[in-house]
Design a protein around this nucleic acid. Structure first.
Lengths: 233, 233
DNA sequence: AACTCACAAATTGTCGACAATCTTAATTTA
DNA sequence: TAAATTAAGATTGTCGACAATTTGTGAGTT
């Protein structure tokens, strides 16, 4: 519970109200899989569990719906999103287009010190990776940080909100529950480096292309998990 | 109130609950400008006006926030979105990327009869345009229908939801309240025709490019309105 | 045995009231 | 006079209860 905080703090939500707290808690549990994907959500049960009224819980559910983690039907109820292969493709098509745009804009709009920060981050990850044999840390917090920084470098508030606050929760859910396999980590490192170089050279077109390719590779990686699961059954 | 229905029915929401009704009503009023952009929303006042409780109204407000029509601050309240030139750029950058993607996918995934329907729609608009000297109708319902059909032709459910249910409300708000000027209408017609041809030829790359260009032109058109307003002051 | 219908239980939608927070304006203080 | 403070008013957040709808069960019919 303490180590996961690092992953949640990237989109900076100041928790003011009770429903904020429930929203953040539920979001983590859904992303981690503690609340099972595809499962039905009982409002009375969860309200009791979090120690809040149903009104407060429903407020949180509304916001979870906004970031695609639950689906709602009138007079029927809420259901946690199901991680299907089809949805993975759909979401990653959208992600690729949006984050490609973000990367292109970042090449124009990032401040030199922000680019410098990106480079430091990458070096830092290189060391951490060596120590820990490049496993869970990099693929979780590290990669996330890298992408968030570039997105914010676009300086497009609407795009930042769309990606960081809405879409990325679902993407994280796929990555956490489906995971990454094999030698993806070191390859991703090289791809990140190439992207940074393109941004530093203000080559938006190239940066966009590299980011799209990077995301496609990430998608293919998760896709294999689905293929493996399908082969078993 | 009756003639605007045609514009609202494109994203097919079945109104079941009371908050559904309030949501649809408020959405129309915000898009049309009846509820002024940038204005503060008083929950008690609007609840009384729509004849529902505050809980029901708040449910509607949550959904309006999901489609970017209102902005919320904890313990402060809701405010209708303000139509600024900066936001126009940000939103249209996102729109261009997403609808470009939709158009590319549509070139692969649209059924022949759907393409045929698009062609018919365009012819129909050509006649209507001649009769009414190409004014309000085309730029409102007609253009909207054209874009919605292509988006749905992408067959990407996530993308469809993102564009039709979320982003397009704000785009419509800009178009309705800022409007289109001059000879844009007939030019848009030609652009639509070119896009349909590219889709029919399954040339996704071209279709994407043409759609992006078409959207850029539309953006530039609205932008001039802001420039005119700025020149006045 | 399968299908339909009706009833009961549970769940969601809605309401009005209270608590917590913010805003505003008057009052005090430097 | 201007800034800071405090108190009153208004607004939002939260709660528990009731109403409306759906779901599940079981009796009855074909």
């Amino acid at each position: 519970m303490t180590e996961q905080k690092a992953n949640d703090n990237y989109n900076d939500i100041t928790i003011t109200t009770a429903s904020d707290q429930v929203f953040v808690d539920m979001r983590r549990e859904i992303v981690q899989g503690t609340i099972e994907q595809g499962s039905k959500i009982s409002e009375p049960e969860l309200a009791k569990r979090y120690g809040v009224s149903r009104a407060t819980l429903r407020e949180a559910l509304n916001r979870l719906e906004s970031c695609y983690l639950v689906e709602r039907k009138a007079n029927v109820g809420c259901r946690v999103v199901a991680l299907t292969a089809e949805r993975l493709i759909e979401v990653y098509q959208v992600r690729s287009a949006l984050e490609g745009l973000a990367c292109r804009l970042a090449a124009d709009n990032m401040e030199p010190e922000e680019v410098q920060g990106l480079k430091q981050l990458l070096n830092q990850h290189l060391q951490t990776q060596r120590v820990k044999e490049g496993e869970s840390y990099y693929q979780e917090a590290g990669d996330l940080d890298f992408h968030y920084r570039i997105i914010k470098g676009s300086k497009n508030a609407h795009l930042i909100h769309l990606l960081c606050n809405e879409l990325y929760q679902l993407i994280r859910m796929y990555r956490v529950q489906m995971g990454m396999v094999g030698p993806r980590v070191s390859k991703a490192f090289d791809e990140h480096l190439a992207i940074i170089n393109a941004i530093e050279n203000h080559d938006g077109e190239l940066a966009e292309m590299l980011m799209k390719r990077h995301i496609s590779a990430s998608q293919a990686n998760i896709q294999t998990k689905f293929d493996l699961l399908a082969a078993k059954n």
